[in-house]
């Protein structure tokens, strides 16, 4: 980890797009196939975490990630409330699947940001001498 291996760097760089596509696939198909927001978010977080193995420097803005996570959490609470109390779900049947996909996306990004924050806090701030 302290001296960067060329092989690991190249292979991880090749794998990034596939990991991202797989994570987004799991999130978008969460309401009909196995998977969902949490699992897809964890896959997306593994992109950031495996990035640390290749490039172990602190250049991720944890503050802005935290802000984004808080905003996502707020919208995860507010959107179901609006959706239920406006009575929109009774009028349009197609809207239910869009609602599920949208909520899965929000949860997925929130889990991704949360796991990334936990990991980078642990790596760069805990146990320093």
């Amino acid at each position: 980890m302290n001296n960067n291996s060329e092989i690991i760097a190249r292979i991880t760089g090749l794998l990034y797009p596939f990991i991202i596509i797989f994570g987004v696939y799991i999130i978008l198909n969460g309401h009909i196939t196995p998977g969902g927001g949490f699992q897809g978010g964890a896959v997306l977080a593994s992109v950031f975490i495996s990035r640390y193995l290749v490039y172990p420097f602190e250049d991720i803005k944890i503050k802005s990630l935290q802000l984004a996570e808080k905003l996502l959490f707020f919208s995860i609470i507010m959107i179901p409330i609006l959706f239920l109390f406006t009575g929109f779900n009774y009028s349009a049947g197609q809207a239910n699947s869009y609602y599920l996909i949208g909520m899965n996306l929000l949860i997925g990004f929130k889990v991704c940001f949360g796991l990334t924050i936990i990991f980078f806090r642990f790596v760069f701030y805990e146990g320093e001498k």
């Binding site: 964890a42 640390y52 193995l53 990991f119 642990f122």
Partner: peptide
């Protein structure tokens, strides 16, 4: 994936 990398760190 996640916990293995965490343990290694």
């Amino acid at each position: 994936a996640l916990s293995t990398i965490l343990y290694l760190v």
